[in-house]
């Protein structure tokens, strides 16, 4: 009986032996399959969230994303991503007033020196808190703003 039980044990050991080479040889295929699963997407806190609206202001194209919750479930803390892009080079200074909720009232004013990266954010409403990140990303300039949920 013990010998019989040992057979599947040895078989499993052989399978374990095979798993290592298969894992690495077929890594790309398995990774592609894994990537199709529903949870395999970067959380909006890191990806910046969904695009809410894209519009043209002067020569800049401004993409305002939807605010995303910055902590787990029901938090008051939110983050907002705004992307500034322009064909060719970005201007030396980006000086824009953003109405992120599109209620026709400006919510904050941002001034970015694209050469030094210096960013000044002036909240115009109480739910805008501070600038979380400001950086050139590829050809665009991205800022993330801390918000309080309305």
């Amino acid at each position: 009986m013990k010998k019989l039980l040992a057979i599947p044990a040895y078989l499993w050991a052989v399978v374990c032996l095979l798993i290592i080479p298969v894992t690495f040889i077929r890594n790309d295929t398995f990774a592609e399959q894994l990537a199709t699963l529903s949870f395999m997407k970067v959380h909006p806190v890191y990806s910046g969230g969904e695009l809410n609206r894209k519009y043209q202001q002067d020569s800049l194209t401004i993409s305002v994303n939807k605010p995303v919750s910055a902590t787990l479930l029901g938090s008051r803390k939110q983050q907002l991503q705004v992307t500034f892009s322009q064909k060719g080079h970005l201007p030396g200074i980006i000086d824009q007033t953003i109405d992120y909720d599109f209620d026709a009232n400006p919510d904050f004013k941002v001034t970015i020196n694209t050469a030094s990266g210096e960013t000044q954010l002036t909240p115009l409403v109480s739910d805008v808190r501070s600038c979380l990140a400001s950086s050139k990303v590829k050809e665009d300039w991205v800022i993330r703003v801390n918000l309080d949920k309305k």
């Binding site: 690495f24 790309d28 990774a31 592609e32 894994l34 997407k41 806190v45």
Partner: peptide, 23 residues
């Protein structure tokens, strides 16, 4: 949350999330 809390790429590039999870 049905998402990954890490600022990496899901697939492609060096040490992608999917590739490392398979390992």
């Amino acid at each position: 949350t049905n998402s990954i809390i890490f600022p990496g790429s899901i697939i492609g590039g060096f040490a992608s999330i999917a590739s490392m999870l398979v390992i």
